[in-house]
């Protein structure tokens, strides 16, 4: 399904959000590399295969203006890991640097939340590095708050 979004007010007009297609892989790799400085072709190829198999609750969405992909968001419904009832997880969101501050991230986030709701989940989660201030501020601006889980880790000695 393709939805044409015309809000929020600062958004550039006529942004289409649609499911990712195999032909989007190079653009997604490039957008991710632009943001992270790392080109992870193999990783994204594997992710495309995972999300393209049509499983209910998996979403890889592309924001497109005209014929140009300008952003993407990836997420899926996960259930009972860490004791959690089904919840939508956002694993990645990215908007081309030159296209930021026009509400595209909001459009993508709203689009995946709509799809999460349609498959019956009422919570959306994400996880990110504490020092990723820009991305964390974005998710905060979407109304996300600290949740009931806390991430712990330990360095494994050789």
């Amino acid at each position: 399904m393709v939805i044409v979004h015309r809000n929020p007010s600062n958004a550039r007009p006529d942004v289409v959000v649609r499911a990712a297609q195999p032909g989007d892989l190079p653009v997604v790799v490039a957008l991710d590399a632009e943001a992270t400085g790392l080109e992870k072709s193999a990783y994204w190829k594997e992710r495309f295969a995972w999300y393209a198999n049509g499983d209910r609750g998996r979403f890889f969405l592309i924001a497109e203006r005209g014929t140009e992909a300008v952003g993407f968001i990836v997420g899926e419904v996960r259930a009972w890991e860490f004791g959690s009832p089904p919840a939508g997880w956002v694993f990645a969101v990215n908007v081309r640097k030159a296209e930021r501050l026009h509400g595209l991230g909001t459009i993508l986030f709203d689009a995946i939340c709509t799809r999460f709701r349609k498959v019956g989940v009422t919570i959306v989660r994400t996880m990110l590095l504490k020092d990723e201030q820009l991305v964390m501020s974005f998710f905060r601006s979407m109304g996300m708050m600290g949740g009931p889980f806390i991430q712990l880790e330990k360095r494994l000695d050789p």
Binding site: K130, Q133, M136, S137, R140, G143
Partner: peptide, 21 residues
């Protein structure tokens, strides 16, 4: 670390949204 990450990620615009809610 957690306090710093929380405070640094909440903008005034986000706070105003929280106030409205």
């Amino acid at each position: 670390d957690t306090a710093r990450a929380t405070l640094s990620s909440i903008t005034i615009a986000t706070m105003l949204m929280l106030v409205a809610r």
